[in-house]
Amino acid sequence: MVEIVPLPPLRRYVLRGDPAPLGALGLKVPPLLQAAAAGAVHVLALGPDEWWVMAEAPPAWPGGAWVTEVSAGRAGVSLAGPDAPLLLAEGCPLDLTHFPAGACTRTLFGKVEILLWRRGEALWHVETARSFAPHLAAHLAEARADLLA
């Protein structure tokens, strides 16, 4: 059982180097490849010096924070349901049995680089560059049809 739902519009910001501005948003600096949240604002540690902040509304960045907004360049889907790892296994080479809730990473799905984030036990966030998103959604939809067949 797994449903594919388009992501709602999200604001996405990339913060590089110094994580200090996260503190001003009330966010803890998460360990590498994990996410943290403060209310509706989420932060994903995707690299040793790279954090992505995601929220439905623009967060109140402190003065002097250097961030890059990439909202418009990204799109993707949510996967909801216990069979989501099975569906992702169609194109993702990671061992998702070792990918607990709260984990996030960049990886590949088929030929497409994706940002994979397990928001909950049965809720996955999969996003990619906007130009790849139709291909990604079609690939997932086809894989889901095969899974249910």
Binding site: L32, L46, G47, P48, E50, T105, R106, T107, L108, E113
Partner: peptide, 10 residues
Amino acid sequence: RWRHAHGCGR
């Protein structure tokens, strides 16, 4: 040298 291109990028 290797680069984790589709991961942390390092």
